[in-house]
Every structure is written in C-alpha cells, then in structure tokens.
Nucleic acid binder design. Structure first.
Lengths: 214, 214, 214, 214
DNA sequence: TATGAATGAGTTTTCATTCAT
DNA sequence: CATGAATGAAAACTCATTCAT
C-alpha cells in the first residue's frame, strides 16, 4: 500500500508531536537543555528544523512537553504499584520493588530525572510540577502506608517520610548511576537485585522488637 | 578621598583563580554548564570577563577546575571519616553518618553532584575522574569494611557493594533534594536526622539472625 | 444535515483572484509588504495557503496585483472627474473636490498610497507605474486646466504644477492621516469639509488682482 | 596621533549608538522595518552584527531609537520657527516657510515620515508618540496663531485646524514626493519655491474681504 | 483544483573569545 | 595585569514556497 519511492514529505500530523518529543527526550537527556541543538532533535525525529515549529512554539516548549510526558505514564504505573493496599505489607513492598525495578530498567525515567535535577533552577515550574504531581504523591502514599503499618504494629516507629526515603533511595540512585557513570565506562548496577536486597534489609530494619511484641 | 574602608593592599593575584572557581561553582550549579554565562561568572567573581582568560584558557577549563576542586577536599574528608577501621562497626558508621551529614549540609557538594550528573555525557572525562577518584574509592572502602564485618560475623550476608549503596543513598538523595526541590519551594529534608535514622535502620537490617548467631 | 444557509453553488473559481487581492490589500496595507504573511492573507481570503499559488506565482506577484488594482479604478474615476473641461473653472473644481473626497473616504486608496510610499524603494517599478499611470496624468490634467484658466485670465500667474500640488495636497494628507494616526487614536479629519474649505481658499488665493483685471 | 595601521577593534563606546542609529536610519528609510536586515545596518555602521546588541536589545529597539531621534531635533527646530509670535502674521509665515523648506531639504525627516506612515500599525506607540510630541504641538501652535490672527481680523474665518493643514500640506507632500518618486526617476519638486508660492496663495486666500473691512 | 504539512534558506539573537587600550 | 568593546561563528526562529494527497 505504501508507495515504493520515498516521498519527500510525509504527512503524519497525528504522530509527529510524539515522535518529536521522543527524539527530544533522547537529545535533552544526553546534552541537557541548553546544549541540545534543535538540529539534532529534528534530525533524530527525521524532520526538518522548521517542522518542529509546526508543533511547538519554542525550544522550551519542546522541553516542557518532554518533562510533562515523563510525569503521566509514571504516575499511572506508580498508582498501580501501590493500589493494592490490602496485601500484607511485606508482600506489597516486594511487589513494589519489582515494579519500580522494571520502570527503572526499561523506561526513560532516568533521563527525565536527570533533566529535572539539572534544570530545576532554569525551569522552576517544571521542577514544581514534577514534585507536586509525582514525587509528593508517591512519597505521600508510601509514608501513609508506612504510618498505617506502624500503627498496626507491623513496623517500628520512625518518621514515615524519612522511612520512605530510606526505602526508595537506592533505586533512584541506581537510575542516576546508570545515567551518569555507565555511559562513562562504569559497571551497571543490577537494579532488580539491589532493590530486592534493599527491601529485605529495610523490612528487617523496620521490624518491631521481638520484646516489644511480647 | 579614598574611603577609609578601602583595603590597603589589593587582593593578591594568587587568590584570583580560587575566587573565580568559587564564583563559577555557584553559577554552574545554578544554570548548568551550557546555560552559564561567563559574564555572570565574571560579575560574581568581581572581575572583568577578560580577566577570566588570564587564569583559564576556556570556559571548559573553568568548569573542569570547579569539578576538580569538588573532588579533592571531599576525598580528604572521606578518608578521614573511614580511616579508623578499628572502631566497632556500628560506632564507625555512626561517626561516618555524622561526617557525611555535615559535608552534605555545609559544603557545595550538592551543586557539584548535580553538575556531574547533568554533564556526564558532555564531559565524560570529568565523570570518569569523579568516579575513579571519589565514588569508587568511597564505595571500595565502604564495601571493604562491610565485607570485613560480614566475615567477622558482625553483619549478615549480602553483596557488600549493594549494601554500601543501601547505606549511603538516602544521604545522597537528601543532597539532590536540596538542590532540586528546595529552591522550588519544597521543605528541606533534615539530613542529619535522616542519616541517623537510616544508619540505625541499616544496622538493624544487617544484624545477623539471632538464631544464626547462637 | 447541511445548514440551510449553505450556498447552493460554491464560490466560482473566477472570483478567487479578486478575493485574494482584496484580502491581500488589507493585510499589506496594515503590515507593509515584508511584514505581511501569506498565512494571514490566505486566512483572510478564506483559502488555503497553497491556493494562493494557483493564482499567483509569488508573494511579490500578489503585491503587484494589489497595487495595480489600485491604479485602474482610480484612474477611471479621475478621468471622469476632470472630463468636463467646459464647466466654469470654479465649478469644475468644486465638483472635483467632491469626487476626490468621496474617493478618499470610501475607497482603499489610503492603504494603497501608504504602500506605494513605503515600498517605493523595494519595488521601484511599482512606484514608477503608479506615477506614470496615475500621478502624472492627474497632475498633468490639473496643471493643464490651471494653465488654461490662467491663460484665460481666470487664475493669477504661478507655476501650474505647483498650483496643482497646492490644490490637492490637503486631501492626500487627509488620507494619509486616516491611515497613520486614526488607528492610533487620533480624531479623523473631516475630509469633505477640509476639501471644500481648501478649494475655496485656493480659488480666492488664485483669483487675479481686481486692479490687474481693470 | 592615530595609529598607522587600521586596528581591528575601535573603541568608541560613546559614539557608537549614534553611528548605529544613523546607519539604521538610512537602511530603515530605504527598506522599511521588516525588510531591513541587521547585516546591512551593521555593515553601514561599520561594526559587526554582534556589536549592535551591545547598544540595543532588539531590532525593534533600534527602530524605536531611530524614530525617537527623529522627534527631538525637529521639535526644537519647530519651536524656534514658531517662537516669534509678535512678528506680523504674513512675515511670520514667510519665515516659517523658509525654515520648513530647509528642514525638508537637508534633514532626514523625509525618511522618518515615511517610516512613521508605513509602520504606524506595526508600532502604534511610535505613531502615537510622533503625533503627541510633534504633529499635534505643531498643529496646535499653528492653528492657535491662525485663530488669533482671525480674531484680530487679519485672516478670514474658517476652521483653524483645517486652515493649518491647508497651509503645511504641500511641504509635507513635497517631502513624501522626494522619498517616493524621486528615487524612481521623478523630477524633484522645488520645495522652497513651492513653499513660498503656496504661502502667498494661502495668505491671499485667507485675506479678509475688502468689503468686510470697510 | 485545493489543501496544509513539510521544507530550507535566510534572519535575528547569543555569547565565548580576542585584543586595543 | 586588567578591562570591556568588539567580533564572528553558531544557534533559535520565521516564513515563502513546494508537493503528496
């Protein structure tokens, strides 16, 4: 059905924005906002530089779209991951670790996180959005679950927010490691293993005293 | 006619490079490498733009100097922190947590880490240097100590490198949080408390089974 | 399902060029040639951008058509206005003033004049055309009539070309005023009144000395 | 005193802005705002394109400066021209005609007027400024003087504003003619002669009836 | 015919780097 | 040594024009 020759113009209005955002994602993640060149983004998206401006008004707009697009799917996955509150807490956590590992491994969150960190001062509203729509909800759900488990006596005392951070930080660091040091020759971290080992460590560390339970 | 407060001696030229690096540190940490302007750096350092070129050949050189300068003092502090292998492991860790907290709180590592993360692909040799001279030595020392403690039966089994990451990641994340979300309105994390709580959690989580010890 | 008001027949293609020229007239008059965008012209003409190229080869062609179209009807009106040489000169002039006022008031000459003034250096041949086909003929007819009246002793001496300019300039300025200052908040000039008052002034100013006539 | 070689950089901070504005004046007057290229302005000013941005933030800023600069000196000249209210009205007018002629002949007002006309819709605030600071004051002074002379019985009745326009319009048109048609091959108008002849015409046309005076 | 997505040459704007002073 | 005006190469952005549909 496709014409044999390669047409000079492709008409794909509906697909273009996503293709551009995907290409921009790669370039921004590699170079950062300022060092990324629209030429590169256009080339990687397989369009002309001018075509970018059919869909986005400025370079900043493209960047915003990239970061925004990083929020939505992660939010969904995360909610899924934490939806089943009724599972026993340890099992919940283990499931959570698995999902987080898979997100970390096969989605571009790494690049997005890197960009949010690197450009938070240049694009404060994006950092704010990210925190409000992703980071705080996630921290909120987790520390809520932790507090509940503490109330039930399943976990020992301790500031729930700090506990949540203790819980997730190695996975985040794993992602950052992959973005930062692996391209430069470092051995990749085995995130699933790290996550699993860490969850077990955390669960043991949070287990109430045997004596207290008596 | 000169104001009385006028310093008798002009700033020694020997100080200039450090002042420039300090100013550059601030600007690079805020904007990233590409978005930082030499005008801003010069202005913040209180020198003319041309003066930068009396001490550094290029913008990249200044950036390198900033990153380099971030390595050295931290390296020293870290070695100090981990030098006294003969303390009991828990006490060693507690001391370590204190030192790391203070570094995290009142040195500009935060900004440097942010820059290393953000520019690792644009300046691979800097990321490499950082890893080789700071990250790997630190991880090495720590996982070595952990492995030794495991061998002595003081800690339970588990990949020492992963254990080390589990140990330090919340502090690193705390620093990143400060650079990323606090300027955008987030509540700062209480890094010393977080560190302390996490170290206790980690120690409990790594404590060998009571049964196994029997 | 079709709205009742839907025209039964589509606009005839034969009308398109004129509609485009009319739309272009508005846009060019507002923005000038270079700042006018074909998108705007197409939108105002109610056609696609590509459609412009079915009728005109380039943006310049559209512009030329606009200017050309400004010449023809005015030329006709002018000739009509000055055709009746046999009327008494004062009456001729009064009739002329009326016609010029109405042209000035309800035709787009204002915009065209503005464009001819603004783009004369960028499109010399258009300025030339305008002068040769409209300005010089008009000036010629008028100074001819003036010279004739002078020869008959109805008007006092004086360079006829300058006299003609003295005669028409307020009307022209009125049109320019409308294009320039009215859109920016100025009170419009009452061109008919201005014209009438000026013609009477001019006639008195050109009346031969009573003594000379004696 | 000047170095023999031609230095690559000239340091003339104080002079540059004026040189740039002067160069821009020429280019804008020839091409209009949109069609003028900063390259041309820079070249004509004898500086690099980048140097423009040392003194002006945008192309629009340069344009504004050109128009603004056209206001001030003309305002001064105009005030001078109309200052001597106590001369007999006819002599005042004759002096005025001389001064206006010389302004028209040897200042760049022509170009500025052309630009104000052509860009009034794109830069409304400039058109407004021009009208408020130059056009209206001038019209005001003139119609004031005319009204006074009418009250003294030196001039016949008639709307003073219209009379003022009748008076100045040929000179303005002469300037526009020079900008529009002379570069395209037209014979220049002899503005001084035109002005003088027109002032006499106007004075006669405004002279009160002999009978009325009796 | 008519459309409008896509192009790419051209323009404005930025800023690291140079150099006369 | 120090300055900062000036440069020029590179990057963002615009828009007349083309062409697959």
């Amino acid at each position: 059905m496709l014409p044999a020759g390669q047409p000079k113009f492709k008409r794909r209005k509906a697909d273009r924005p996503d293709e551009i955002v995907a290409a921009a994602m790669d370039v921004f993640a590699e170079k950062g906002f300022a060092a990324a060149r629209l030429d590169d983004i256009a080339a990687r998206a397989g369009v002309s530089k001018g075509a970018l401006y059919l869909y986005f008004a400025t370079k900043e707009d493209i960047f915003r779209a990239v970061i925004e697009q990083g929020v939505a799917p992660n939010l969904g996955r995360l909610q899924t991951a934490l939806a089943e509150h009724d599972a026993a807490f340890p099992d919940l956590l283990r499931a959570f670790a698995t999902i987080v590992s898979s997100i970390a491994t096969d989605s571009p969150v790494g690049g997005i996180i890197k960009m949010v960190i690197g450009e938070s001062r240049n694009f404060p509203e994006l950092a704010r959005t990210w925190r409000e729509r992703l980071v705080e909800p996630a921290l909120g759900v987790m520390s809520g679950a932790i507090a509940a488990a503490q109330a039930r006596g399943e976990l020992r005392a301790g500031d729930p927010r700090h506990c949540a951070i203790s819980l997730v930080s190695p996975m985040l660091l794993g992602v950052i490691w992959r973005e930062t040091f692996v391209p430069v020759g470092a051995e990749p971290l085995d995130i699933p293993t790290l996550a699993q080992q860490h969850v077990e460590l955390w669960l043991r560390g949070m287990r109430p005293d045997a004596g207290a339970a008596a």
